[in-house]
Design a protein around this nucleic acid. Structure first.
Lengths: 348, 348
DNA sequence: CTCCTGGTAGAAAGCGCTTGCTGCAACGCT
DNA sequence: AGCGTTGCAGCAAGCGCTTTCTACCAGGAG
């Protein structure tokens, strides 16, 4: 039923070996022969059998991209950039690779299972994006998998994710701590003293790093930290909305709210507005990531811009072996403070 | 180096066939034997070789999801929903399938190449999302591929995409025309007579359908169409911004702007605001899709809600053969008009 | 005119898994 | 007791491709 290499070979009057070589182009084949083969391929509408090829060659052209939440533009933008470099079809690289993005939904188990699935497929490379879960057993399990993948020849790259020790994985990490520090410094510089902080899920590295940066800024300014001023939630709008109401309940005198990311910040804005508070006159708001919609918020969001596309592209190139990994396999990518309309001098 | 089925078999003192059957669970194996095998698998840390298995079984557990732009939440949300149903790891289905999303970037060639790649991998199913390109040769090429995929046993589902005749592909189509009609009807009902329309790229089905709905509403209200009132652009914020300035230049007396989608609408809002026009007092704005951020716009966006998640989930189930396809293989999914703050009675 | 070399093509041995078929106990029936 | 069942396990033949090794053909050198 389906056309095989042998069929093409028969039609072109050559051996299967020759057809394979023409298709892979890694062995000298006379021009006339090549042409004949190519014609046969065309006439028969032959499509290579990926699994068979992967089995025989012991490698596949699959590249996995793991993301925590594909519905979140943060990951969408990164995935898009990574994938553009991987090649996928149309990428600049000649070798067509199937860049596939896998949605872990932030679940450690899923992450592991996807890694296994990718290992099973003998993926050529794997890029893990976004923060990791810090729970020890899981971190160890992931590290183990990554090590095995690397052993099997799969290139592993972490993008926007902290380095994984002892894994030979290249890490392009975002300087969340530094970005958060700069952001809160900015707010403090404006005169704010009572700042609420809406953090992400407690077990994620991203959450911890941003929170640490925030606290470092407070400490540096001699502002004592009030435990009531920090609330944990998810990385979404809804969470920001609810957390803001909670913060306001705990301390109505807050003059600024720092959110874990832009989506959360948007939710915070909505909650403030509904509470009759003006932004930034009554309360300043700050986000993180600088996703495209942040500039359209009213007022536009003060935030920390993360070079998602650039980092993704670089990760993609490294994964393809088209760019040298950074020295030591680790690079820290800095964010840039974007001061916009949502932050201002506090009232009183 | 790597552990194979045979190694596991040796360790468990059974034949490779038995190990395979334990792993696939589609053949009776005595409990004691099964347990022994499972233990060996565990001890050896065995990982099935996907390609080999796919080759032997002539099917793989790959499911492809094609999207036009993975950085766009419209697709992210759908992909997420589809994938949750496909299973991926953690899905409700037992059989672990690797749901992979492929980013075509809206390019017809890439779409085709991805389809070939998926065909090459002998994918179990393929879900194509979003509008299609209408150019005849390309449409034919895609239809041909889909037919071949179907012939090879791959289930093909279209989600938010018009039916592909003669392809046996199941289509869950959004009623873009109806939604657009309702939206413009709403605006006309408020008293608007001079409406600008920012359309998407001309060659996409989505663009055409939404535009048709809009025009149908105008015609029904006896409003003559002014060619100056329609501008084409891309489906992004930037495009909305520029198109709005252009519309305003062409006819400063417009009282409403209907955008191809929410992102475009956001851009339109920004342009209006910068032009010193109030929304909706001076100009009403309407979007399409009802993406999460639409409600956070100020004022919140009047738009047409498309059940992205629901449709995606359904598409995923159909792709898995877990739900009956709609009668005739085609279902039209309706949108719901969401009237919010960005639309109001025109001035004067 | 033979020998060697460089350039191509073919033969064939797998890659690791699935599965149809066969084999063989143990069992229950008449 | 004899024989058909039933339940499980193994054998072995591929699945379609890659790749090593061998074979061959020219042509130039000796």
């Amino acid at each position: 039923m389906t056309v095989t290499l042998a069929d093409v070979a028969a039609r072109a009057q050559v051996s299967p070996a020759t057809v394979s070589r023409v298709l892979n182009g890694n062995y000298p084949v006379a021009a006339s022969t090549r042409e004949r083969v190519l014609r046969a391929v065309d006439e028969l509408d032959y499509v290579l059998n990926g699994p068979a090829s992967a089995l025989a060659a012991a490698t596949s052209d699959l590249v996995g991209i793991l993301v925590n939440d594909i519905a979140d533009p943060f990951f969408g933008i990164m995935a898009s950039a990574i994938q553009a470099e991987i090649g996928g079809p149309g990428g600049r690289a000649g070798g067509e690779r199937l860049a596939v993005v896998c949605n872990t939904g932030g679940s450690p188990e899923r992450e592991l299972t996807y890694l296994t699935l990718l290992q099973r497929q003998r993926a050529a490379a794997v890029v893990l994006t976004g923060g990791a879960v810090e729970e020890a057993p899981h971190a160890a399990a992931v590290a183990g998998k990554l090590r095995k993948l690397a052993d099997a020849g799969t290139r592993v790259v972490l993008c926007g994710r902290p380095p994984a020790p002892d894994t030979r994985a290249v890490a392009l990490t975002f300087d969340n701590r530094g970005g958060a520090r700069a952001l809160t410094d900015h707010l403090i510089g404006l005169g704010h003293r009572r700042l609420g902080y809406i953090a992400g899920p407690g077990e994620r590295t991203t959450t911890r790093h941003r929170l640490e940066g925030h606290r470092a800024a407070l400490a540096a300014a001699g502002i004592e930290e009030d435990p009531r001023h920090t609330v944990h939630g998810r990385y979404d709008r809804r969470s920001g909305y609810e957390a803001t109401l909670e913060l306001l309940r705990r301390d109505p005198s807050l003059t600024a709210i720092v959110a874990a990311n832009d989506s959360v910040a948007l939710g915070a804005c909505a909650a403030l507005r509904e509470s009759g508070l003006r932004i930034p006159e009554d309360v300043s708001v700050a986000g993180f990531d600088d996703l495209p919609f942040s500039i359209d918020a009213v007022p536009s969001l003060t935030t920390v811009r993360l070079p998602l596309s650039e980092a993704g592209a670089r990760a993609g190139r490294v994964a393809m072996g088209r760019e040298e990994p950074p020295p030591g396999g680790i690079a820290s990518v800095r964010g840039e403070l974007m001061v916009r309309g949502s932050s201002g001098v506090p009232r009183e």
